[in-house]
Structure formats: C-alpha cells, structure tokens
Simulated assay, not measured.
Amino acid sequence: MKYTTLPNTDIKVSKICLGTMTFGQQNTEADGHAQMDYALEHGVNFFDTAEMYSVPARQETYGSTEKIIGTWFKKTGKREEIVLASKIAGPNPNFTYMREKNDFSPASIKFALDQSLQRLQTDYIDLYQLHWPERKANFFGQRGFKVQDDAWEDNIHSVLETLDGFIKEGKINYIGLSNETPWGIMRFLEESKNFNLPRIKTVQNPYSLLNRQFEVGSAEVCMRENVGLFAYSPMAFGVLSGKFLTGESHPNARIKLFPQFSRYNSEQCTEATRLYQEVANKNGLSLTELALAFIEQQPFVTSTIIGATTVQQLKENIDTIKVSLSEEILKEIDAVHAVIPDPAP
C-alpha cells in the first residue's frame, strides 16, 4: 500500500480508501466485516461512510452502513487503527425520515453527529464531511451550475463555528466537503482564514475516466490551497471494469439493480469505455487497472474511494496501487478524452 497524509495534518492515510455504501443493502453485515478485515490486512487504513448509507437511500436501511462498521469496531477492537470519515446529509425533501429538517443548522449537525457516533460505536470521527451543499449548486446527474430560485442565505460562518465546537469537544478531528464546486471550496477557505475557524482538509467529489469535470476549476483550487480530493465513483458504478461490454447481463450489478442510477448508462459512456478498454488491452492492463491507476497517480488526489460487493473485487481494486501509467499511456487516455470528454454528467 502507498500512503499520504490528510492535507495540513500528520494523519497518515492509505492512497486507497474503502467505500462502504453497499453495506446493509448489497452486502450483509458478514460481508462488510469480511471486506473491512481484508482491507486492513492489505494496508487500507481509511474507511469512508455516511449517515444516509446504505445506497440507494431509503428509510428501511438508513444508518445501516454505520451500524455495520460499528459492530466491526466492537468485535475487532481496531478503531484506533482506522482513519474514519463520515458525512451529514444535506437538504433533500425525500429524507425527512432522517430528521425534521435536513440542513446544516447547529441543531441538525448536533443530532446527525451524535446519531452517527452512536451507530459507529465510537467517541469521535476523524473526518466529518458535509455530504452536499445546502444551496442549489450541485446535483447528481446535472452538468454544470444552473441559475435557479434559491432561498439559501450564506451561513458558512455559522456552520464552521458549529463544527469548531464539536472539534473542541473531541467528537470530530477534521472537516471536509463533498459534492462541492470551486466557489464553495473557496468560500469555506475564505471564512476559515478570515475568522480563524477550522479549515477544510478535503473535498469528496466524483472523478473517473468518464467524469473528469473536477479538473476544470476544482483541481487547481485543491493544488494551490492544499485541499485533498477523495475521488469517488472512480469505477463509474462498475462500468469501467468493462464487464458491460461483453454482452453478459450482470443482473446483480448496481446499475442493473438500481436503474435510477443512470449516470453512466449513456451511449457515450459505453463508447468511451470501449475506447479505454482498447488502450488497456494495447498496454497489457485490465481496464480496472487503467481506470484506477489513472486516478491514484493524480497529484491532487489524496485517496481513491473504492467500493466492492465481493472480496475478490476488492482485491483486484487494491492491487491496482502497484500499477504506474507511463506518459505515453496518459497521452492515449487524453486522446480518448478529447474525442468523448466527460460523457457522464
């Protein structure tokens, strides 16, 4: 395994992070425990979760992933060996079962954090993230910023003050953002700098061969401001394994089980995947190796979040840390990107 540190800290994290959102839906508690055992045994010391998991989010499975991680901590006693990240859900009218109001008010943050700590069976979370903005700025399936009615009033100072209180209490060590825009990242950094409030360490956004929009704006922000990217969906819901190019049905695949996740189902995504498969074949790599190695060696990526439904998939993903792509291969990847840029919104 390769390691780095959370920006502006001395916390060592593996360059591969175990994503856990399948625990409690596609994976049982026993499956989740087996994945965490395997990941830690192979050097992965960084786990990411969220209060809304498992996915797809629904009332019946709300909090199930955190509960499974919590029972693993209790069983193994290995909480201190793990850098643990979780998230508070932002506004969504379908998530009223989580709490009366899904916002980042002091009361909501306190309730969400305390509930997460209880489910996780721990006294603290190493990295606590805002899962998506309160303002109408970034939606799954939407490409770019859309001007629209937005009643949001800038409360970033209040949010940072609230999180600062929980840091001082010892319930949180560090904070981060997720699904953020360049403006949002800079706005948080500005407020922390001007008022000596906690500084965000990371942002967790989608980044893959099929979605390189992070490179436009956000990558420069992260490099110049020393904010780390946690890249999620690096395999594009399994599309970048190449398994959907074979003609087989794969009925248990995420995009088959949950057709509402159509982000990577377009003809453009299929064609781009086929072209990336050709690049991988030409260079003696699997498409999985090509896709993950590309993300892992980007200088603005702190850690790549991988999610698997089987230990075998997890093994293949973790093993990609040994792969290094040459400048020639990177040029071939960029040539495909130039023909079909960012097919997934």
Results as ranks from 00 to 15, higher is better:
W72T: 06
R212I: 11
L325T: 09
M1V: 08
N252R: 13
L257K: 13
K193V: 12
M186Y: 09
E100Q: 14
P341T: 01
F46T: 01
R254A: 06
Q297G: 04
M98Y: 05
G90A: 03
I340C: 01
E332P: 03
Q59A: 14
S178V: 02
K15L: 11
N194L: 13
S108F: 06
I200A: 06
E267T: 08
Y3F: 13
R199L: 09
I305G: 00
R274Y: 04
L257G: 01
R119S: 07
Y53D: 00
A280M: 09
V339P: 01
Q204D: 02
S108C: 03
K193H: 10
K75V: 08
S158R: 14
S218W: 11
D154V: 11
F258S: 06
G32C: 01
T20H: 10
H250I: 13
P133G: 02
E332G: 08
E153A: 11
N179S: 10
L285N: 02
P206T: 10
S64N: 15
N226L: 12
E316S: 12
S108I: 09
E191K: 10
P93M: 09
D149K: 13
L163M: 14
R99P: 00
A30G: 05
Q115S: 15
I16M: 08
V336Q: 00
P106V: 08
Q297C: 11
L240P: 03
L84H: 01
D342V: 01
K146P: 04
P198L: 02
A137H: 11
L197Q: 00
M52D: 05
N179C: 07
E190P: 05
G242M: 02
R263I: 13
L330S: 12
T310V: 05
A85M: 09
Y276Q: 06
S262N: 12
Q26S: 10
F104G: 02
E248R: 15
M52H: 08
L197F: 01
T302G: 11
Y128T: 11
K282L: 07
V323P: 03
N92S: 12
S158D: 15
A272T: 00
L40N: 05
S266Q: 00
R135I: 07
R187S: 08
N317G: 04
A291N: 06
A231K: 04
G63I: 09
Q268L: 07
L314M: 10
Q115M: 14
G228A: 05
R143A: 12
I156C: 06
E66Y: 03
G170M: 04
P259R: 06
F244A: 07
V216R: 15
H250M: 12
I167E: 06
Y124W: 08
Q277A: 14
D334E: 15
G70C: 02
L292Y: 14
V301Q: 05
D150F: 10
A34D: 09
T5L: 11
R199P: 05
D103L: 08
Q204S: 08
R263Q: 15
G228N: 04
T273Y: 01
G90F: 02
T309Y: 00
